[in-house]
Simulated scan of single mutants.
Amino acid sequence: MLNLLRKDFIALKSSLWMVFLYLGIFSITFIPKSELSIYFVGIYTAFGSITLITMNDIKNNNHHFLVTLPVSRKQIVQAKFLTAIIITLFGVFASYGIHWVAKIVYPQFSKPDYSILAILVPIAIVLLLTSIYMPLFYALSKKGAGIINAVFLVAIITMSQPVAVAISVINQKDVLQDQSMLFIPLGIILIFIASYFLTMSLFSKKDI
């Protein structure tokens, strides 16, 4: 398992400049203009980096190689989901750090004081996106990876306004007092777990 995780991050090393490019572009685009920039920078950077790793798998034919090794397909999928979680945390915390610096260096941007929701909400959204993306990626793999990424890119852009409205509603609610709001993260965790089992099932049946 550890070696599979190392493989993903070694493969990402050659494209690491792309991750920081995502972070830089999204920060420059959203921070001066959007009150919800901390959410969008984290979400776009994290999910963009996840798709970057999956495309590296396609480009290098990693799945064809991995299935010849003494590792199970279950372990391959587990490693990919763990990698997605790590990258999600990196993207969201990097966004939080950049916004913390921007608030000090550029007070004219009038950034608000961020609560724990500024970390939890983007993590939840990226995990939800990953839950949809991973089964599709492993089901369609090389034949449909480019199409999947294009569809998700368009969907994320077109859904940015509804997501912004939803985030604003969540921010206005007292999450600790409104117990119904606690079902949202619980539901996302269950969807993420279900996605893992679905992905594992699809990949185990796939002829490579």
Score class of each variant (00 low, 15 high):
D178L: 08
I123E: 06
A145M: 04
L136R: 09
I156Y: 02
L129M: 09
P135I: 02
Y138P: 07
V154E: 00
K143Y: 01
K173R: 15
Q177S: 12
V121I: 15
I170Y: 07
I157A: 10
A150V: 10
V121S: 06
S141E: 09
Q172E: 15
F137D: 11
L153E: 06
V175T: 15
L127G: 02
L140W: 10
L136Q: 12
F152T: 13
I157D: 01
S131E: 05
G146H: 00
Y138T: 08
V121Y: 15
N171I: 13
P122F: 08
G146P: 03
G146Q: 01
G144T: 05
S168H: 07
K173W: 08
I148Y: 01
L136E: 07
T130C: 12
A155I: 13
I148F: 05
I156K: 00
V175Y: 14
I167E: 11
S131C: 07
D178W: 04
A164N: 12
K173E: 13
G144L: 00
A150W: 00
T158F: 09
Q172T: 15
I119Y: 03
Q161M: 10
I148P: 05
P135W: 04
Q177T: 09
T130A: 10
M134P: 01
I170F: 11
I156W: 01
V163Q: 11
Y133H: 13
A150R: 02
Y133L: 08
N149S: 14
Q172K: 14
G146S: 03
S160A: 13
D174Q: 14
I119N: 01
A166E: 11
K173Y: 13
I132E: 05
L176P: 07
V126E: 08
A164V: 06
T130K: 00
S168P: 05
S131Y: 07
L136S: 12
T158M: 08
Q161N: 09
I157M: 11
D178E: 14
I148R: 07
T130V: 06
G146W: 00
Q179S: 09
A166M: 09
I170E: 10
I125C: 10
I167F: 11
P162E: 08
K142L: 02
A150D: 03
V121G: 06
A166T: 08
A124S: 14
I170M: 14
V121F: 15
P162K: 03
V151C: 02
V175K: 06
V165N: 07
I119L: 11
L153H: 02
N149K: 06
S180V: 08
L136M: 13
V169R: 06
Q177D: 09
P162T: 04
S160C: 04
M159P: 03
I119R: 00
A164H: 03
N149L: 05
V126M: 10
S131N: 10
I123F: 11
D174L: 12
I170G: 05
I147H: 00
L176N: 15
I167K: 12
